[in-house]
Amino acid sequence: MTPRLPPLDPAVAEIRLALRRALGSGESAVARRSDVPLALVALSGGADSLALAAAAAHEARAGGHRFGAEVVDHGLQEGSADVAERAAGQARALGLDPVLVRPVDVDAADPDGPEAAARRARYAALEAAADETGAAAILTAHTRDDQAEQVLLGLSRGSGTRSIAGIPPRRGRILRPLLGVPRSSTEAACAAQGLDPWTDPQNADPAFARVRARISVLPVLERELGPGAAAALARSAEQAREDADALDGMVDECIEELVEFAEAGIAVLIPALAANPAAIRHRVIRRVARDEFGALLSRTHTLEIDRLITEWRGQGPLTVPGATVVRAGERLVFTAATPFEREQESHGRVPPRR
């Protein structure tokens, strides 16, 4: 008589299924590679990445994929090297191979702050490890709760559809299988499998905006608006991403048709651009400024430029970050700002001129 297997814990099953679906996607970077491709789990030792590592180990035993892990030591906390080695030991015990530990230098003076600097250093290390090992994919363990936090942060910045589209499920060879899985499931999966996750003290430090969203804002939404607020925010991110992707595709087509090189810079054909809705016009303006001049325009700057198209009354050129914009007949002409103009703009001394 065949012995009956114990029932599979629902949280463990949920994470395994999420990973299987990500790996089996027709557009997955993993699915397009060799017969037995390698994927690296970005492992911190916390509950989310440890649960993902355990699911990866199960999939490896089932065949079809190989899984390794990389642990990035940011060196920002005392004892971080010990934490990294502990996580690496857990990955090896699960059967992942290869398991890499990589210390990185985080620029403490980064103008975007320590979180952004650590994120850039981490992803650079993960990409380098994938290059070295020939990995087809890098798996990160962002959960539905992370997605909800990201949407809240995007809403607070007020920077448009792309900002509230949240964390993308894939970008290049980065795959995020757990974006539909709540953090409670990763914690439950670790408990069910006897895994001992590390608790990062920075995850409770209210000095970080993301932590404040996690421990102060989301619980209030769940309590005051009803359970499911985090899931609703994550669904909103999916819909916003679909809309943003569609609009970006339309902008690509517009730029091919409307943008041409001018003697001193880039010109956009005004009559054809004016026939488009504001969402397209504004995206074309921002894309030209970003791609050609490295300028990240605020909404105020974008609207001022748009008035050269829709409310033309002979107003003079506008100086915006990185560029000067002027209407010349039927063309909107962008030219690179002079060093003096850039310096004045950086000090807020050159507002848009009307």
Rank of each mutant, 00 (worst) to 15 (best):
A55L: 10
A55F: 01
A56I: 07
A56V: 01
A56N: 00
A57G: 15
A57F: 04
H58M: 08
H58Q: 11
H58Y: 14
E59N: 00
E59D: 13
E59G: 10
E59A: 15
E59C: 13
E59W: 14
E59R: 15
E59I: 10
E59K: 13
A60H: 07
A60M: 14
A60W: 00
R61I: 04
A62R: 15
A62N: 07
A62G: 13
A62I: 06
A62E: 14
G63K: 12
G64S: 11
H65C: 07
H65N: 08
H65P: 09
F67C: 10
F67D: 09
G68Y: 01
A69T: 01
E70D: 06
E70C: 09
V71S: 02
V71A: 04
V71H: 01
V71R: 02
V71Q: 00
V72R: 05
V72I: 11
D73I: 05
H74A: 07
G75K: 10
G75T: 08
G75W: 10
L76D: 12
Q77C: 04
Q77I: 15
E78F: 13
G79V: 10
S80Q: 10
S80H: 11
A81V: 13
A81W: 11
A81R: 15
A81E: 13
A81N: 06
D82N: 12
D82Q: 15
D82C: 14
V83W: 12
V83S: 12
V83M: 11
V83F: 11
V83Q: 13
A84T: 15
A84Y: 09
E85I: 02
E85N: 08
E85R: 09
E85K: 06
E85Y: 02
E85Q: 10
R86L: 12
R86C: 08
R86M: 01
R86W: 06
A87Q: 01
A87M: 02
A88W: 03
A88T: 00
A88V: 01
A88C: 05
G89R: 02
G89F: 01
Q90S: 06
Q90E: 13
Q90L: 08
A91Q: 00
R92D: 13
R92S: 15
R92V: 10
A93E: 15
A93L: 12
L94H: 08
L94I: 05
G95H: 13
G95D: 14
G95W: 08
L96D: 04
L96H: 00
P98A: 13
P98K: 15
P98E: 14
P98L: 08
P98M: 13
V99M: 07
L100S: 07
V101I: 10
V101F: 00
V101M: 03
V101L: 03
V101P: 00
V101K: 09
R102F: 10
R102G: 01
P103T: 02
P103Q: 06
P103N: 01
V104Y: 05
V104M: 07
V104R: 12
D105R: 06
V106G: 05
V106C: 09
V106Y: 04
D107S: 03
D107F: 04
D107K: 07
D107T: 03
A109D: 14
A109P: 12
D110W: 04
P111N: 14
P111L: 03
D112N: 09
D112P: 04
G113F: 00
E115I: 03
E115H: 07
A116W: 04
